[in-house]
Design a protein around this nucleic acid. Sequence first.
DNA 1: AAGTCGGGGAG
DNA 2: CTCCCAGACTT
Length: 398
Amino acid sequence: MNDRVFTDRIRAWGQQIREKNKRGLPWLGERDPYRIWLSETLLQQTRVEQGLPYYHAFLEAFPTVRDLAAAPEDRVLKLWEGLGYYSRARNLLKAAQMVVRDFDGRFPESLEGLRRLPGVGAYTAAAVASFAFGLPHAVLDGNVYRVLARFYDLDLEVPGTAAQKLFAHRANAVLDRLDPAAWNQAIMDFGALVCTPRKPDCAHCPVADHCGALLNGTVLERPVKKAKKPKRLRVLHFLRLDRAGEVLVERRDNTGIWAGLWQFPLWEAPAGEGPQAPRPDDLAGLDPKASAQQALHGLGIDAGHWSYRGSSGPLRHLLSHQDIRAWVHRFEPAPALAAKGGRGRKGALNGVGGEKSAERGKVAGLSETLDRQWIAHAQLRSLAFPRVLTRHLETTDA
DNA sequence: AAGTCGGGGAG
DNA sequence: CTCCCAGACTT
């Protein structure tokens, strides 16, 4: 009953929006599964305005899935730089390679087939299935959760398995099976433009007279979200070692935060060391130079070979689950040692006498377990760094 | 079921 | 500040 009213009116509302051409987004009306998949992956947990420039950049760099599949991972990560959730980028490449290798460059034309691609979850599979292939699968994203929670005044906590099942059921119940693509577009647009999180425009809502939450006065309480945990406080010390136009960088491994990105050698006080994890109070008295030396020691670098050139920080870097205070400590070769030149080619200057940058790691006893290398400043631009470091690089013009 | 994974814009 | 965004994956 209410389902029918909801579907009819939201569908009509969507048609109006399309005619007025609100949100002139490039993937609207798109049928190419590659472009749809690309845009949906870019937009996972990402606002449209934020992802839009990346969409254009990727499409220009990789017009087809074959172009993407042939790309080196570092190039994909570089294009993704700044967008966050970097496993999306690596999964994007993996999925492209799978499509080319296993399906001759054609995307699977079923929900289940799409779902098997890395980085393609319930939402993205439904989006590609409906937008590219017209299949009757309802999308369930943040917008749809909110719209359904309000219209039916559902008080289940999200995220949660119970809620997911119920909302998915509702979403498919109201799906317009005559035009799944237009419907999915309409309900998401409706959530983004009318039934917004903070200030929903109930005065102009086409289903206000049937909205459960509006009738019950619970609009701003829907959907019910779970309580958030406090953020973990971390203090990171990056060591920026410069020598003769080069800087030492290392590649992070493929797990955890900033997976696969590049960074300056990083030292972080072990969490288990000391009374407890760092607290905000502990940071006020933090002496940059002392921290720099501590980091140098922590990374096993002979402090005698490097002279301190100052620190920038703390760079406050807020993530959804971490509160990061980052420092970048700069060092250059100690003058005394530089004068000695070739004494010990494995010394602090590591390769001054013509060793290739390809020889990694050996920085005065620095561990070789990581993928470290000296790189010319001009080449830094080709590597993907975490935002906290690109911001630092921008202000220091390196 | 809970934890992890980024970054930015709006209010 | 807080919230949350065209979520997915791991444990």
